[in-house]
Design a protein around this nucleic acid. Structure first.
Lengths: 252, 252
DNA sequence: CGTTCTATTGAGGGAAGTCAACAGTGGTGG
DNA sequence: CCACCACTGTTGACTTCCCTCAATAGAACG
């Protein structure tokens, strides 16, 4: 059953509009995309690595992890997606999924057929440009995660992750940087930071004891933002938050 | 001085064409891009993190590292770029560079003004699509690096990196997977894998003693490809090498 | 109201880091 | 053409951060 998903799509349009200038026509073209709503149970994979997909998944509610797997089955989350994110936008352009997607908590997604997205992108160059830019923003986050996992110790890694999620939740209108939802287990955080759940536990304890941040019942409370930023060596430059880039679609 | 850079651009067109279908007109539009050739000395940065750039850098010859930095100055290379790669293609769409670029060896680059690239992308939707897809391919590699650095031990990390570079060099027509150039120091490899140069040294020694691969005078000799793949837990799926994806630019 | 996740804590081990010394290697200038 | 110097590679001894294993407590769920 297909009807207007505009309310579910609005956060995604907002996300696009934060980095790209969209005309009203383009914004409403995106808002009028048709798709199917799906519920995904906590801890279940809904896109497998290597699978060919013909739709993209917009996170409407919940939390999604994009992950890769090592041969021994160890999982590494490479990005977390919150409501308003298109978790596998790259698949629109490259339909064989090089990653898996899992729901970390009970999650609602909107499945948008590639054909739909492609049609809109083909018709509106400004939309194609915005989607391209959105992929670049995600790539920039992956890049920073390589730095995080490769060059920072456990305390800094977790602090960095919390900073990133704080800013992203704030911008998405889901709480603010001092209090936001992060419905992931300590094991999930370990998969995101390249640590074990045991070490995540000890590290969170240290952040708590230093009165920097506390995580309880899937909520993060940041008591000392500046210290969290300092411990996490966090510079938000990689998130590409400087406002819309000039559009070039119309240039002759 | 501006003249035809078609020979320098051809490898880039080949790279694009390996993942995207380009018409002859589109290919020649890319080939006719104007730019400036620059020499960059080994170990020098030529794009700084956070800098606003107005051109993209095509690697013509040599080896380039894309990197991020932690607060203590520790460098983490997030991607290596070989000839034919556009090292900072994402900047075309997001001109504030969230990463730095360094030459690992004496390198020749071709600086292509964003305005030029944007003009061609705006005129030829198929080129825009190909560039978007190229950014996605790079993003997929970042993602895999997160997995590599986060979930594999030193031996596997290096083996994985060698596999990746072997395939990429082979596809770019620079040697084959059993013998290719990798003009990086052991310290550089450490920056790429999140290890210290000392540990890279010990680990390369082990690969050598196991008769899997040898690195000497900036050349990698792979003696046992299958074992290298096995040790590195390498699955080339993430490189998006399955041939051109269908193009959607013309769809009404 | 048990069952099953999830969080917490301790003890011990191991992979990689740090520090330091020395050996190759390659480029440059006298 | 050789001598020097800076860079890169190699190896050893010691340290540390994080992992592994294991046991228990707490929370969520039916």
């Amino acid at each position: 059953m297909v009807f207007s998903h505009a309310p579910a799509l609005q956060p995604f349009v907002n996300r696009l509009a934060s980095r790209s200038l969209l005309t009203d026509e383009e914004a409403s073209a995106v808002l009028s995309l048709k798709g199917q709503v799906r519920q995904v149970a906590a801890h279940s994979d809904f896109v497998r690595q290597g699978e060919h997909v013909d739709h993209a998944c917009l996170v409407v509610d919940g939390l999604v992890g994009r992950f890769g797997q090592s041969g021994e089955g160890a999982r590494q989350i490479t990005c977390l997606h919150i409501p308003g994110d298109m978790a596998d936008l790259p698949s629109v352009v490259s339909p064989k999924s090089a990653w898996g997607l899992m729901a970390l908590t009970n999650t609602t997604i909107l499945r948008l057929p590639h054909a739909e997205v492609r049609r809109v992108a083909a018709k509106h160059a400004g939309v194609a440009e915005a989607l391209w830019r959105d992929c670049v923003a995600d790539g920039s986050i992956f890049s920073e995660w390589v730095v995080n996992v490769g060059r920072r110790d456990a305390l800094a890694r977790l602090a960095h992750l919390l900073c990133e999620m704080a800013i992203r939740c704030e911008r998405a209108g889901q709480g603010d940087r001092h209090a936001f939802a992060l419905p992931a287990t300590q094991a999930d955080l370990g998969d995101a930071t390249g640590l074990t759940s045991v070490h995540v536990n000890r590290t969170l304890k240290e952040l708590r004891e230093r009165s920097v941040a506390t995580m309880r019942s899937r909520q993060v409370i940041v008591e000392d933002w500046d210290q969290l930023v300092s411990i996490g060596d966090f510079d938000e430059g990689f998130m590409l938050l400087d406002g819309p880039s000039p559009r070039f679609s119309e240039v002759a």
